[in-house]
Computed example of a mutant assay.
Amino acid sequence: MTKQELDINLNINVDVSGSRKQGVNATLNEQIGKVETDFSVAQLAYFCRVMYDLKYFQNKNQTDMLKVAANNFTTSNAQEISIKSLKAKYYSVDNSTRESIKKRLIEMLNYVNQK
């Protein structure tokens, strides 16, 4: 079973007449989704860092915050994000990632200013 799948099997035998049993079977197989982004892992990591550094995230423990991001988001290239990869990119940001997040933040600001 993957992290995204939840299986519940329920078997109930009901004695209705003292001698005869009826079976009730129910199965739930529910896919638990993640938030899909078009960020790269590096962009997601840096975006989390910006939010954390500006105190928009209140978690004291950065690793806990990154675990939540890794477990609940997918990126353009990764359906499963490794906490190790996210953490490495969180602490080591290259200029192209910095510029791409800057561009996205400006895009957000322009969007807010238009509304």
Rank of each mutant, 00 (worst) to 15 (best):
D7P: 14
N113C: 06
N113W: 01
V24I: 15
Q31H: 13
V93D: 00
C48E: 00
L66M: 12
I101P: 14
D53C: 08
M51D: 05
Y46A: 02
G23P: 11
M51R: 03
Q22M: 15
V16M: 12
N9W: 10
M1H: 14
A70P: 13
G33S: 05
L28D: 12
T97H: 01
K67L: 07
T2I: 14
G18M: 05
I32T: 03
T27G: 14
L86E: 08
I101V: 15
Y111H: 12
N113F: 08
Y111F: 15
G23N: 06
V16L: 13
G23T: 03
L86G: 13
N59Y: 07
N72L: 05
N29D: 03
K89C: 07
I83A: 04
D53L: 06
F39A: 01
Y90P: 15
Q4I: 11
S100E: 10
S76Y: 04
L28M: 14
K3T: 13
G18R: 01
K84M: 02
G23Y: 02
E36A: 11
G33W: 00
K87E: 01
R104I: 10
L28Y: 14
D38N: 11
S100A: 13
K89D: 14
N71E: 09
N110C: 03
Q4S: 15
A45R: 00
N113Q: 12
R20L: 06
I101Q: 05
E99I: 02
S96L: 08
D94E: 14
S17N: 15
A69L: 10
E99T: 03
K89G: 09
Q114K: 01
Y90I: 09
F73G: 08
A78P: 09
K60D: 12
S85V: 06
N95F: 04
L109S: 14
S19L: 13
V41I: 03
L66C: 12
L86S: 14
L66K: 01
N59L: 04
I32G: 02
K60I: 05
N113P: 09
A78E: 05
M65T: 10
K34S: 04
A88Q: 05
M1D: 12
K84A: 08
K103H: 15
Y111P: 13
L28Q: 07
N29S: 07
L86W: 07
Y56K: 02
D7E: 13
L6Y: 02
Y90E: 09
D64T: 15
Q114G: 03
G23V: 01
K34E: 01
K87Q: 01
Y91W: 04
A42M: 03
V112I: 13
Q4L: 13
K102S: 03
K89I: 03
N110E: 09
R104V: 08
L109I: 09
N71C: 05
L66A: 11
A70I: 04
K89Q: 11
N9E: 14
I8V: 15
K55L: 10
T27V: 12
S92T: 03
V112P: 11
K60Y: 07
V93W: 00
K3Y: 11
N61T: 11
K60W: 04
E99G: 02
A88P: 07
E107W: 00
G18C: 12
V68S: 10
